[in-house]
């Protein structure tokens, strides 16, 4: 690597990914990814199933081994920036029958900065309760997590990331399987965070809402097809190049959404 440790590299970018390749077995999940995201944007990552969207988030967080390339957050490695990054994994990635409560799950977000041996106390509980309040879940703080609805569980997960007060927030399909009310409140929370100057990257699956929700967009299908401010990259051409033959989906999206004007039936 030509960058020395500790020496900032691209410090003006919230996220800088260069030459990143990740493989599972012999199949590349991400191939030669270059990505630059400025601070203060609400960015969506879209692409078909198996495009490597979740893998991209995991690669940023150092959860999967990189075959090549590097990732920098505000100029530094993830290990150096741990405390500034919040992560909301897919809701289905954990067992919601685990014997614990909503406020306890939110407290887990503080485990990293509490050090190895200290037990959570009053201060941690208060901070967790405030985070639950931000997502409108404070009334259900002591509820067993299996008794919460899907949307409520999702908001607990978001509160767990908010309690860290992250400068960069990564969310993996936060709108999957939640009701319309929850989806609206999630997007309100993300909008508020963006206005506070935080950077948010969201893996998203619903093309119909892309234009309304995000101001920055990454088209991903193993490679980065396009990335940039939504007005300049949200085109039918990029959608087709990302989703290939799944055009019925795009046409539906365009009709309901009054989407990009140059969208046409692909051959």
């Amino acid at each position: 690597m030509d960058h020395e440790l500790g020496q900032p590299h691209e410090p003006d970018l919230a996220l800088h990914v260069e030459d990143l390749t990740v493989s599972y077995g012999d199949r590349p999940a991400l191939w030669d990814i270059d990505l630059n995201i400025p601070p203060g944007v609400l960015a969506g990552v879209i692409g078909p199933n198996g495009a490597g969207k979740s893998t991209l988030l995991k690669a940023i967080l150092g959860l999967v081994p990189l075959s090549a390339g590097h990732v920098r957050l505000f100029g530094h490695t993830y290990a150096e920036q741990r405390r500034r990054v919040g992560y909301v994994p897919q809701r289905s990635s954990v067992d919601w029958d685990f014997p614990t409560t909503a406020v306890d799950v939110v407290t887990m977000g503080l485990y990293g900065r509490m050090g190895w041996f200290r037990w959570p106390g009053r201060r941690e509980r208060d901070r967790a309760l405030r985070a639950l309040e931000e997502v409108g879940m404070d009334a259900l703080a002591d509820r067993q997590i299996s008794e919460l609805s899907g949307g409520q569980q999702q908001r607990v997960f978001i509160a767990r990331a908010l309690v860290q007060q992250p400068d960069l927030l990564l969310l993996d399909e936060p709108m999957a399987g939640v009701d319309a009310t929850t989806e609206r409140s999630i997007i309100d929370i993300l909008g508020r965070l963006r206005r506070e100057g935080r950077t948010i990257i969201v893996v998203h699956h619903d093309l119909q809402t892309v234009q309304r929700y995000f101001d920055w967009l990454i088209f991903l299908n193993v490679r980065v097809i396009a990335a940039g401010p939504i007005d300049s990259v949200y085109t039918a051409r990029n959608l087709r190049r990302t989703y290939g033959g799944q055009v019925a989906l795009l046409d539906e999206g365009r009709q309901r959404n009054g989407g990009p004007e140059d969208a046409g039936p692909a051959g």
Binding site: K58, R82, Y111, G112, W116, P120
Partner: peptide, 22 residues
């Protein structure tokens, strides 16, 4: 007793435990 937090989070959500450096 010493590693209760880390054990708990590693059991419930190993990805977050790793992301938080536990």
């Amino acid at each position: 007793l010493a590693f209760y937090k880390a054990l708990k989070l590693a059991t419930f959500d190993p990805d977050l435990a790793r992301a938080l450096g536990l």
